[in-house]
Structure formats: C-alpha cells, structure tokens
Design a protein around this nucleic acid. Structure first.
Lengths: 221, 221
DNA sequence: TCCGTTTTGTTCTCCCGTTCACAAACTCCT
DNA sequence: AGGAGTTTGTGAACGGGAGAACAAAACGGA
C-alpha cells in the first residue's frame, strides 16, 4: 500500500501462506487441465480445501492478480504462484539413503513434474552402489561434495536411518547445501541459514491415534 | 455434531501440543535407552528441539508429572505421554496402494514399534495380489470391508495415485474407518467425524524452494 | 530446623494467523 | 448510460500459540 516498487520482491509472505501456495498451485493445475479459464476465489478455495477469505488474503500477498466481479485467470495466476515459489526454475536435488523410502522418493513423479530434478542417489552401503533406481545409478555417499559442486545442488533429502541422519546433515551443510528435507526420526541440528523441513510418518499416525482414542472414549459415555 | 458430554477427559489438549507429544515420546525413549532416569525440562526440550517453557506448558496439559527442583522421571513421563496419545494400546492399520511408497510404509519399522500393526496391504491391481511385502500378502481392495470388520481397524493409510484416493477414502469411511493418513496428492473430502492427515512430499520441497530462492535473491543484492 | 539452590507449573503479554464483513471495482443486462 | 449483481482486496476483530518471567515447591547441606 505504501512503498511497493514493482520490481522489488520485498514482500514478506507469512510462513503459513507459503505452505499453502503449493496447494493452490496444484488446484490451479487441475483446473487448467480441465479447461477452466477463469475461477472465483470461492471455487479455487473449494478445490484447495480452504476458506475463500483465507485464499484471497494469501493471494493478496503476491499482488492483485484477480479481477473484481470476475475472478482469477487460471493460467496467469498459476504462473504467478509458480514464479513466487520458484518452481519455474530447475532445482537439482540429491537423495541420501536408498532404502525402501529412498526408492519411493526416487520414483516419485511428483518431484520432477514440479521442477525438482534428482541428480544423484547416494548410499553409504557399498552393496547398493551401482544399482539402478529410477534410471539413476546409486553412488557412494563420499561423492556428495563433487556432485553438489558440479550441479549446484542446494536441496538435499535425507532418507537414512535415524542414527546416520545427523552425520549426513553435517556433511550436506559442509558441502554447501542450504535446504534439507528430513525423513529420518529425531532432531537435526544445523547452523543458522540452513532450512530443515521434517516429515515424520509415525508422528502423523500417533496424532491420529490420539484423536481416535478420544472418539472411542466419548462413545462409551 | 454430537454434543461433547461432560464425561470428556476434562483436558482439552491444544492441537499444537498433540503434534509435539510424539516428539517428546521419542526423545524420552532415547533418554531411557541411554539409561537416564531423570531429566529436566531443559534437557528434554533440547533433545526434542523445542523451547523449555513450551515443553513445560505442553506437559502441564497432561497433569503434574514432574517434581520441582528435580525434573521428570523419564520412564514415568514416557508412560503417561504414551497413555495420553493412545500408543499403549494396539492399533490395527490398513495400507491401500502398494506401489513404491506403499512398500516403504509396509516396511517402515517405526510403525510397529509404536503400537501400529499393519493387518493388511490392499491394492486394486490384480497383478499385485499375492505378492509378499514385509511378510504380508497383498490382497484385493474389495477385501477391505471384511478386514476392517475382522480386526476392528480404525486407521487407514492411502498410498495410491491421486486419482484413486477419493474413491478409496469413500470406501474406507463406508467400512467404518474414522482416521485416514493420506499420502496422495489433492484434497480429500470426508464426512464430519473422520480425521484426515495429509503428507504431501512435493509441498515440502516447494516450501524449501521458496526459501532457497529468497536466499539467492538476497545474495545478489 | 533453616536457608540457598534448583526446577516445575503457571500467569501474562505479544504476535501470528484466521475469519468476518464491507467498500471498491468490474460485468452484464436493460 | 445506468443500475443490479458479482467478486476481489483489505481493514478489523478474534482466537490461539509462543516465550518471558516468576511464584511455588522440592531437595540438600549445615
């Protein structure tokens, strides 16, 4: 509203909004593929599973990309969100730990289709080296540094057992990786400036169990 | 919805706290295995990666299980949290969609060790039926109803492609499942009273990409 | 017993995120 | 051209969670 230079991306997008932008992006992609040219905040909010007021406020952090009385141009908004998130560019990614989960991640098509390119699969176990997974050869973990340097990797994925996770993270940070997606149990300690996001499968189930237990308790009342 | 009667367990634990209890539980287990008998909120908070004041407030929702001037008895607190979450009991779980991710989930030891027992692996693809995964035979999806009835399953995991997810969820709900962990992309629509938690791998990477992009922009300023 | 030390449980304040509600802005129809 | 109908963008109220700070409680030593 005040000083807002058009080139300046000094917009401070709230973290909660950032986490929803990918959801909107996916909903817009679905709409676009269905041939929808324009959509209202109400329709998009329904497709994304959120409140329409929240959606509009989220989008307002990016700019005014809608038209009052009309709605949003699906493809235009999709591009704007993609640009804001950064998925218009190509992100090389390294996956460390090629067990069951590493296999699944390497084969997950949702990464590549969103601008994430797996440039290497690494594992400390020599028995795995050379194995082909998703068209990529599994290489020794010690190759990390050269791979990061060669491809300019900024994002690393940890899919190792919990005991190895911290050591892997330390090495990643030392090699210059500044964003880590961690699937291993436990807390990772990294220096400031490095982002870590954690996905903990058993935590999710335990939260469900808590609510399930409460439902059961309520029934026998 | 049904009125929440006065017999409710009095404690209305905030959702944010519920999500952290499993983390504390894991930290306590680690401490216990290391032979630690007692720990302060400071120490436990460090192990769990949270602020100590937040930890104490979280625990205070469960009751007063600590001793001032001393700290918490590791095993006692561990049991209390486990009981509160509900992981002292056995939770039968069904996994639907035995692709790469389904394989990984079926083999994930973190489930079983926390009270979750995979009672069935289901897939719609007849080519997969009979295959043994993690010691369990893959069965047809249509067996869902009988399995849920037989084992009293309340929790279902969806690891199918996005297009099938809603149909699977509908069927799960129809069979009596009231908690769903969804790994498929897109929004699930379920009736009130059914809990859904969603894990979206590509969303996590996109959030990292956003921050990564901002770091890069800042550097060239 | 009494005092100093340690650590919990809790209160208070601040901040972030959600939601409501409405004016502004645009389209369409007459 | 003008009014009716839509839909966005945003100001404001509201609720919940995070963290600082402190009083209460327990222990240990003299």
């Amino acid at each position: 509203m005040t000083a807002r230079t058009s080139t300046e991306s000094a917009r401070d997008i709230p973290e909660a909004t950032v986490a929803r932008l990918p959801v909107y992006l996916r909903a817009l992609t679905t709409l676009s593929e269905a041939g929808t040219g324009t959509c209202s905040s109400e329709a998009l909010a329904a497709a994304a599973g959120v409140n329409s007021a929240k959606l509009r406020k989220d989008l307002s952090y990016l700019g005014s990309y809608g038209t009052r009385g009309v709605g949003y141009d699906v493809d235009y908004l999709r591009y704007q969100i993609a640009r804001e998130i950064g998925v218009t560019q190509d992100w090389p990614v390294v996956i460390v730990g090629i067990g069951n989960l590493g296999h699944a991640l390497a084969n997950y098509s949702g990464f590549r289709s969103r601008g994430f390119r797996t440039v290497a699969l690494l594992d400390a176990d020599p028995a795995r080296h050379g194995e082909m997974v998703a068209g990529i050869q599994v290489r020794p973990f010690v190759d990390l540094e050269s791979i990061v340097a060669e491809h300019g990797v900024a994002i690393g994925v940890i899919a190792t057992p919990a005991v190895a996770a911290q050591a892997v993270a330390d090495r990643m940070v030392a090699c210059g990786i500044t964003s880590i997606l961690n699937f291993a149990a436990g807390v990772l300690s990294v220096p400031a400036g490095v982002d870590v996001r954690k996905v903990d499968l058993s935590v999710e189930l335990q939260v469900l169990a808590y609510h399930e237990q409460r439902k059961a308790q309520g029934e026998l009342a």
